[in-house]
Design a protein around this nucleic acid. Structure first.
Lengths: 122, 122
DNA sequence: CCTCAATAGTTGATGATATGAAGTAATCGT
DNA sequence: ACGATTACTTCATATCATCAACTATTGAGG
């Protein structure tokens, strides 16, 4: 099993432990700041109708609220609730703690890996 | 957008260009050799019933066949067809060619990254 | 040799995710 | 003022994921 399948499996496990599906967890992580639904669609590389359903489910879980943008009534922002922020923080911590990155690479190697990955982003 | 979302988006794009969903593409890649359905379930980190549906769809696409294991009649192997092998090869080539790994890292850096990722696997 | 626990895969129900088309509401440029 | 564009929703459809219950098969142990 390659690195990508292993990382994906680990991520799914941790997300599940936080009562989240993969997409829900990734979306929470992306919402450090409120974002418009079309920005979330871009970040999650899916269509706007998918984000409508995703937002419905996150809202039902009490993790986000939909907020109209005062400057443009077409736009809806997704904002984490208090519970959403807590869940996001615990998820992020768990991802770091349980991470193979921490367990198997030295800090120097992690820095090295970060440099290479940053270069990948351009 | 972080590295993982970018890589995932790129993979989805390439998979789509080959007429495959994300899971279908990842499954084809894992089937270098015939594997049992339970091995595929393990590799894709999902339940056996999901692999039944996945195999149905890959079979319908003409990319795999189900083959009974002669030594154990409980076991079904998934084996690529000729078309499946071709699709897999083209997919793998496209993933390499279009890859940021190739475009943005030198061969030396790629070797370095590989070493770090191999260490991640233990 | 027989029984039973374990394994492999299937079926069916259910919910999540993803696409695409068509729709409504709003914005902005001409 | 109007039309093109944008943002989001609705709806239909397919894929994917889990879970429970099922059938068929294997193999260990008595």
């Amino acid at each position: 099993m390659g690195v990508s399948e292993q990382l994906r499996a680990d991520f799914d496990t941790v997300a599940g432990q936080h009562g989240l599906t993969d997409l829900q967890a990734r979306t929470l992580l992306t919402l450090a700041e409120p974002q418009s639904m079309s920005e979330v669609a871009g970040a999650m590389t899916c269509g706007p109708s998918n984000v409508t359903g995703l937002a419905d489910r996150l809202e039902r879980l009490g993790l986000i609220v939909r907020v109209p943008d005062p400057r443009d009534r077409r736009v809806t922002l997704l904002e984490l609730t208090d519970e959403g922020r807590r869940r996001r923080e615990r998820l992020a911590e768990a991802l770091v703690e349980g991470s193979m990155l921490v367990a198997r690479l030295t800090p120097s190697e992690r820095g090295q890996l970060k440099g290479l990955l940053d270069k990948l982003l351009g």
